[in-house]
Design a protein around this nucleic acid. Sequence first.
DNA 1: GGCATATTCAACCAAATGGTTGACGATCGT
DNA 2: ACGATCGTCAACCATTTGGTTGAATATGCC
Lengths: 126, 126
Amino acid sequence: MVDDRFAIWFWQDMPEPLDDVFAALADPTRRAILAMLLEDDMAVTDVAEPFEMSLAAISKHLVILTRAGLISQEKRGRVKWCKLEPDSLRAASVWMQGFGQFEPVNLDAFERFLETELGEDAQPDS
Amino acid sequence: MVDDRFAIWFWQDMPEPLDDVFAALADPTRRAILAMLLEDDMAVTDVAEPFEMSLAAISKHLVILTRAGLISQEKRGRVKWCKLEPDSLRAASVWMQGFGQFEPVNLDAFERFLETELGEDAQPDS
DNA sequence: GGCATATTCAACCAAATGGTTGACGATCGT
DNA sequence: ACGATCGTCAACCATTTGGTTGAATATGCC
């Protein structure tokens, strides 16, 4: 059994991209944006169109989604295209599945698993 | 194809428990708490012990986790026991899998982990 | 060049978040 | 009944968040 201090260190003090991913997902506007991008890549202006808020606000949301790695933005000409990046959802999904599936299981092995799993394709953070 | 306004209504304006779940998961302290509860049910004081913050702060975190449905709290005597409630995590997980083409987590490694973990051989690599 | 379009920047604001401390009501042990 | 323990409440504080507006920076079009 892993002692709590190790667990705290591991789960809390590691440079956690999960903070950004979950924080990004916590906002309904941003989830709606992701849902829209599921259909197709979109320009910033088009992303903003159906919302009742300023373009600048949407632009900020897109920055947050980008920092979380959930989307990428590529500027072509004067329009910036937004593209869903499902890979970073993977880390979060892995983390969550850990809780869904193994209630009573060995945390040590789970930690080792996560370590290798999340370390594998560590994103070249912006 | 669903038009965007419907999508916005659906994803953004529904009474979304996902807001609370993801917001709860966005904090590393709260994720650490969940990880601890993965091992066993715990009293509030024991949850707080390994952290370098006040009991009141942990108590607040537990309220947030409870509101999100991620844990439940039952008071027995003077101690309040905290229990992981993986079901609401599953809801969030389902949402992410709704992003779907990206597979319910295409985790070969996860499968292998499950096998070794749930099987007899609990030492996958030395 | 000159104008429209696309996007971000900067300053500002209100509200929410995450923490503190100290007081407080319950409950246990003796 | 008394004191210690468990946990929350209330007030406070600093920082972050999510939004606004108006100006600024590209870029495309004629």
